[in-house]
Computed example of a mutant assay.
Amino acid sequence: MAIKQLIKSTSGWLYLNSPVGRQQLQGAGVILMLHRVLSNDRAADLPHRNELCVGPKAFEHLLVWLRKHFDCVPLMEILQPNALRSERPRVALTFDDGWRDNAVNAFALLQKHQVPASIFLSTDFIGSRQRFWWESLGETLWGSHGDKARMHLIECLHARKHPLPVLLDDIDVERRSLALLHYLQGLKSLAPQELEELTDECPKDSLPQALDWHQVRAMEASGLVRFGPHGASHAILTGLDDARLSEEIRRSRDALNNGCNRPLPVYCYPNGDNDDRVRQQVADHDYPFALGTGTGIYRGDGDPLNLPRFGVSQRTARHPQLLSWRIYRGARP
């Protein structure tokens, strides 16, 4: 671990175990944001996967660490706390998008350690073969589907005037993966229709990328997992006109009401993007809470329609003391 990270890890550990830290965090709520749990840790280590993916060993390491330092509680226990509060800080896990590996890889570990979680579904993807553009484009460009598929997609991107950076052919794996991460981040500004067309140029996956409703209902029946909406099409809500925005929120709400027994009264903004107009629409559709991506501790104050979360990457899961450093930074008065 680099010296800077070592200092942060040590400081974070001292904070969690100091009287000052315990006092600042007493009764506070920490909401964590995850996306995927892959089948092996080496795949999650690469920079273009690191931010959204964790491996099973790293995820289990994180769960053990969380149970040691926090009360692991359902999200609604943080948002609507009981009168009785533990002296320990509380943490709630959330997963965005609704990836199939949430059921295949994450759920067994949540059950093993009895850690509850909330999963926010992009409902158009659930039970369908529809694909997340980031995954399809990223893995095709990485070469996971072979060189022929990679070259075809590169030609399509070049024709649309989205040429790849030179570093995407670098022989150094880390540099190449980091270049791919930055390139994919730059594609976020493209119109959803163009991203969908580019995704169609990628090879089909052998299995759906997203959960199906049978998996959703099975996890919900365990009592350990609850589900909420993360948009219908995963469109960035701030870029939609009023009519499309209302339809997007309504469609995801209706899908959850039909597919789940107890959908959460919490909306989760795709990409975290929201503004006054979006928050008002979410409130008008009877959601008292919504999750953003800004960092911070939840103490019952602030805007309930833009709740803070701490993102968890593979690096953070491997070294959760780094998370305690970020919590320290977010908990300061």
Rank of each mutant, 00 (worst) to 15 (best):
K4F: 14
Q5Y: 13
L6N: 13
I7H: 05
I7F: 10
W13K: 07
W13R: 07
Y15A: 06
V20Y: 06
L25F: 02
R36N: 12
V37N: 01
S39A: 15
A43M: 12
A44H: 02
A44D: 00
L46E: 08
P47Y: 00
H48C: 04
E51A: 14
L52D: 08
C53V: 03
C53D: 03
P56V: 06
K57F: 11
W65H: 15
H69C: 07
P74C: 08
L75S: 02
M76N: 00
M76P: 02
E77K: 13
R88I: 09
P89N: 04
A92N: 12
T94D: 08
T94K: 06
F95K: 07
D101L: 07
A103S: 13
V104H: 05
A106N: 08
A106T: 10
L109E: 13
L109G: 11
L110S: 07
K112W: 08
H113Y: 14
Q114H: 08
A117S: 08
S118R: 00
S118G: 05
L121D: 00
D124H: 10
D124P: 10
F125I: 11
I126S: 02
G127Y: 05
Q130L: 13
L137H: 00
S144L: 11
H145E: 14
K148T: 14
L157T: 07
V166T: 13
D170L: 04
E174D: 14
R175G: 05
R176Y: 05
R176N: 12
L178K: 12
L178H: 10
L180P: 01
L181Q: 01
H182C: 15
Y183R: 00
K188L: 01
K188N: 01
L195M: 01
T199I: 05
S206A: 15
L207H: 10
L207G: 09
L211G: 06
W213Q: 01
W213I: 10
H214W: 11
S222N: 01
L224T: 09
P229A: 15
G231H: 03
L237R: 11
L240T: 02
D241L: 08
R244C: 15
L245M: 06
I249A: 03
S252E: 09
S252Y: 07
R253Q: 10
G259C: 06
P265Q: 06
C268A: 12
P270G: 04
G272N: 02
R277L: 13
R279V: 12
R279Q: 13
A283V: 11
A283W: 05
Y287L: 10
Y287W: 04
F289D: 04
T295Q: 15
I297P: 01
D301P: 06
G302M: 05
L305P: 00
N306E: 13
L307K: 06
G311E: 07
Q314W: 03
T316N: 11
P320E: 07
W325T: 10
R326K: 13
R329Y: 10
A331I: 10
